[in-house]
């Protein structure tokens, strides 16, 4: 009985953490897929989303709106955070990446690194160096499943993350813009020849990826109850590992990879000394890149484009 409860609890934890990593990983994988750039600033977008979530949630709570219209206020919090970070993503793409589209990859990578440093320090200056507390809105209520306790908050977050991922999948598979994104990622020149507006397509990617990261940021803030200006770095690296694990550029892969990284980390924390848990993601990353650089779902062979 004990072990069973423990196991169920760990599975829930892994699902939660995995959804977060998957959401962030999607941003990396989409951007890499379309412009072959590791968007180092993506971790900061996650953090920015978390901060905006905190700001909006705080304002709504002071107005007493959260108590009276819980669902609506949750919607507003997520929508505002995602919209803000989408704006941020588009701005960064325009300023830091677009001028370098034909430059060497090293230049673009360093530009992204610069943006990452700029954003995290900007947030430090504007929002402070210490942890900021998130108002506890998710409550402590929950249900018991096979002896394990699952809070409504966990259920809500996982469900919402899954909904976002399903939505993204539908968008990419079914809509015209989504197909244009895939076409641009697979063969940019040909996409241009067919009349696809490449700039617009890339901009769309920088709306969707950051917005998903922002959603993850709000979730983490609500769940763990605090935000900090540098909280995006480690999850960012782990999510990148997840994207690589799933085969970078592959959207389904990013989801699977995120879940796997979440699971590995939870298992590690459950059975092995937890101060080493941040090492796991790096080790997984290195092992994957060494043994199977195309990822576990790696049908996509990445070729260097000349």
């Amino acid at each position: 009985m004990e072990t069973q409860a423990f196991l169920v609890q760990q599975i829930v934890n892994a699902l939660f953490l995995g959804s977060i990593y998957a959401l962030i990983a999607l941003g990396y994988t989409m951007v890499y897929g379309i412009i072959q750039l590791i968007n180092f600033a993506h971790g900061e977008m996650f953090t920015a989303g978390s901060f905006i979530g905190l700001i909006v949630l705080g304002a709504l709570q002071r107005m007493g709106f959260v108590e009276s219209h819980f669902v609506l206020s949750m919607f507003v919090v997520f929508a505002m955070a995602m919209a803000y970070v989408a704006f941020l993503g588009v701005a960064i793409e325009h300023v830091a990446y677009k001028p370098l589209r034909r430059a060497s990859r090293l230049s673009a990578l360093l530009s992204a690194l610069g943006m990452s440093i700029f954003l995290s320090n900007g947030m430090m200056l504007s929002q402070g160096v210490s942890d900021r507390a998130y108002p506890p809105v998710l409550g402590t209520g929950g249900i018991h499943v096979l002896g394990a306790r699952i809070t409504y908050g966990q259920i809500f977050i996982v469900a919402f993350a899954v909904a976002l991922m399903v939505g993204l999948n539908l968008f990419v598979k079914k809509t015209k813009l989504g197909k244009a994104m895939r076409a641009t990622a697979q063969n940019r020149r040909m996409a241009g020849l067919l009349g696809i507006n490449i700039d617009k397509t890339i901009r769309t990617t920088f709306v969707i990826g950051p917005a998903l990261g922002a959603a993850a940021g709000v979730m983490v803030g609500m769940y763990y109850g605090s935000v900090r200006f540098d909280m995006g770095f480690i999850p960012g690296i782990k999510a990148f590992a997840a994207a690589v694990l799933g085969g970078i550029g592959n959207i389904t892969g990013a989801m699977v990879g995120g879940m796997l990284i979440g699971m590995v980390e939870v298992l590690w924390a459950a059975f092995l000394p937890s101060e080493w848990k941040d090492v796991t993601a790096f080790i997984v990353l290195i092992l994957v890149l060494y043994f199977r650089p195309t990822g576990i779902l790696g049908e996509r062979v990445i070729e260097e484009r000349v």
């Binding site: 197909k179 895939r182 076409a183 697979q186 063969n187 020149r189 040909m190 020849l193 049908e299 996509r300």
Partner: peptide, 12 residues
Amino acid sequence: QVPEGRQIFPLM
């Protein structure tokens, strides 16, 4: 244009 090397989108 039908470019050289066909340029099919391989994953579509």
